[in-house]
Design a protein around this nucleic acid. Structure first.
Lengths: 227, 227
DNA sequence: CGGGTTTTGACAGAAAGTGTCAGCAAGCGT
DNA sequence: ACGCTTGCTGACACTTTCTGTCAAAACCCG
């Protein structure tokens, strides 16, 4: 097998596995020497693949998402840039920062001329109008880690009421951000406007079903919710 | 020079130039044979670089933007995905379609497992509330091609009034999209809410200054406009 | 249709890649 | 502290790929 083809397959194996693979295993798998595996890994690192080698453990892809090289049309590049500006303007601190660094990575990956042309495309996103009292980052982390949230929620004209929710989806609408969650108080799915959440607490308690399966049930019950 | 290094420099040259370069020129530039240039170009194509060769003209990068391979963190990937969903929900037909195809390219570039994980991240964007009467695509095209627009604009409580504008920036705010343009009627920069534009016509007339220089002047005059 | 240019296939020699092996570094058990 | 094991790298001989050369095919233009 040619080297370049082998490198692609090595990358594929690293992607598929979340457990480290040893040089010995890869050598047997490809019918090459361990020395060559070390050379290939070095080459992958040089190509920008975030592969880590750890003595006694093996090789693993650093957590994250690796994109191979690709070409975009002008409109596609505009869309990516506009979208990241949206996240910069509307996202919470963490994801806004992530949008910023993703943008820097993309701009770095382009040539100077393309970068200048892209940054001056004149497409902008205004800031949000509503001021939110809680960090969306906490909600996103709860969604990702499958953790319950305890929120103080204020319906119009009433005092805050405390409840425990299982966050399922987070929606960005024109004037508000909306949390779709299973509500333990009501024993049903409910929508919560983020600007009416007075406080929220990350609970070290998992909800009993995966968020994906809850999301599927939720979408079945609320097909027009745009979430 | 090693082959991989040469390939990167070839790519750089193709990026920098908007005019085609011949195999002969590249061979002289790198001190290699023309045959090797042809081999290198073939390899670049295999790597996904959108290079086109045309007999009698030379090699050129297909219009568009080429991104080399790169790695994103989980938050950065979330930000890119959320951003593209925003453009899908809020953009005009053309850029929404471009966001869709960019998304497909990005998902194709990821492994199946990453793709599934990303698509189920639970971050959504709601549809716009205002219904717009004109296509943002026409405005974007006028911006890109430096063309004047003739618009029928309706201020509150009055009939539409026609005017010619030079579109400089397009902003997506929570409840409206806003066009920042030089207005020939008022002889000044003005903001135009897209939902109040009753009609618009693409004029085959260039405005006399580059949009980037107008944008710079506009930003100086309106530093708080978020555009 | 002929001439010129671009591109590609084939081949011999040069350069890079590979397997082997010795040696270094780190960790662990005694 | 020492010996053993494992992971990793440098050096070297051999193998495979890359390169330049050249002829031929393909294409374009007058």
């Amino acid at each position: 097998m040619q080297r370049s083809g082998r490198l692609l397959q090595l990358l594929q194996i690293l992607r598929e596995r979340r457990v480290a693979v040893t040089a010995k295993f890869l050598a047997e798998r490809f019918g090459i020497s361990e020395r060559t595996v070390y050379r290939d890994m070095k080459t992958l690192v040089e190509l920008g693949v975030p592969v880590e080698g750890e003595a006694g453990i093996g090789f693993i892809l650093r957590p994250g998402f690796f994109l191979p090289s690709m070409a975009f049309t002008r409109d596609e590049a505009d869309a990516v840039l506009l979208g990241l500006r949206f996240v910069l303007a509307r996202g919470d601190g963490e994801i806004a920062k992530a949008a910023d660094t993703a943008l820097l990575k993309i701009m770095d990956g382009m040539g100077d001329r393309d970068e200048t042309q892209m940054l001056g495309n004149g497409l902008a996103v205004g800031p949000p109008e509503t001021e939110r009292r809680c960090e969306l980052g906490t909600i996103r982390r709860a969604m990702r880690d499958r953790r319950k949230l305890k929120i103080a929620y204020r319906t119009d004209g009433q005092a805050s009421r405390s409840r425990v929710v299982w966050p399922v989806a987070l929606g960005f609408f024109d004037q508000v951000e909306m949390l779709a969650a299973w509500c333990e108080l009501r024993d049903a799915f409910r929508h919560f406007r983020i600007d009416r959440i007075d406080s929220l607490t990350f609970l070290e308690v998992n909800f009993p079903r995966s968020r994906n399966s809850l999301l599927a049930v939720y979408r079945k019950l609320e097909p027009h919710a745009n979430l």
